[in-house]
């Protein structure tokens, strides 16, 4: 079995399995802790609060924005760029249609693809540099956080290097790194892609009952 075959075949299915099972397992264990009830008389509906919190946290809290310009710029550039690339890059759309049998949708044009990659790259680099250079993040970041940054960076970098789709080894490299990322995902803080919902809900519910706009 060649490397290409291994990466396209067994490793891909293994990564897919680890990715989905890992995520499911992690969410199940989190929820299995159960929720401590609250007997106090609510001022307002906790449910409204949790729905509110889910969306309100996409914007910086009032008065905080001016202190976290870099986080905001980097965070938004990276995340928006990442999702645009994941969902609308032409090779990705083709991939979903081919390997996951999803109906193909309209990908973005090449120039937009490249532009978005650039922005996502700047975002990721800003976030990563902040993580390394800011004393706060340097103190609280774990090896796992750095590993997540490096892996994400490598995946995006290899994707960009394989942009021409001219050289099979580059595609295989990108694919391999994606698989590594998928296997790493459920074990890492990359899981925040899912847990952020739970966390915001919990906070929103708690403060929603108290009538505090979260």
């Amino acid at each position: 079995m060649t490397v290409t075959e291994f990466v396209d075949g067994p490793l891909w299915y293994f990564a897919l399995a680890v990715f989905f099972l890992g995520i499911a397992w992690r969410l199940v264990v989190i929820l299995a802790n159960g929720w401590r009830g609250d007997l106090s008389r609510p001022r307002r509906s906790g449910l409204t609060g949790s729905v509110r919190a889910l969306f309100s946290r996409f914007a910086p809290a009032p008065g905080i924005g001016r202190r976290i310009g870099l986080h905001l710029t980097g965070g938004y550039l990276f995340h928006l760029g990442l999702f645009a690339l994941l969902l609308f890059a032409a090779p990705h759309v083709a991939f979903y249609a081919e390997r996951l049998s999803l109906p193909a949708w309209q990908p973005m044009p090449h120039w937009a693809f490249v532009l978005v990659s650039e922005l996502a790259f700047i975002g990721l680099m800003l976030l990563w540099l902040n993580r390394v250079l800011n004393p706060v993040t340097r103190l609280i970041s774990s090896t796992g956080d750095h590993l997540s940054s490096i892996l994400t960076f490598l995946v995006m970098l290899s994707g960009c290097l394989a942009l021409e789709q001219a050289h099979e080894p580059l595609r295989v490299l990108h694919f391999f790194l994606v698989e590594v990322l998928m296997i790493y995902f459920p074990f890492s803080s990359l899981m925040h892609a899912f847990t952020f919902v739970l966390s915001r809900e919990a906070l929103g519910y708690r403060y929603g009952r108290r009538g505090v706009p979260v």
Partner: peptide, 21 residues
């Protein structure tokens, strides 16, 4: 080398605008 060079060319073209920024 073709793989390295192709990756370099794509990377160079993509990272260039970041340098300007």
């Amino acid at each position: 080398f073709a793989v390295i060079a192709s990756a370099s060319k794509e990377g160079h073209n993509l990272f260039g605008p970041l340098f300007i920024v």
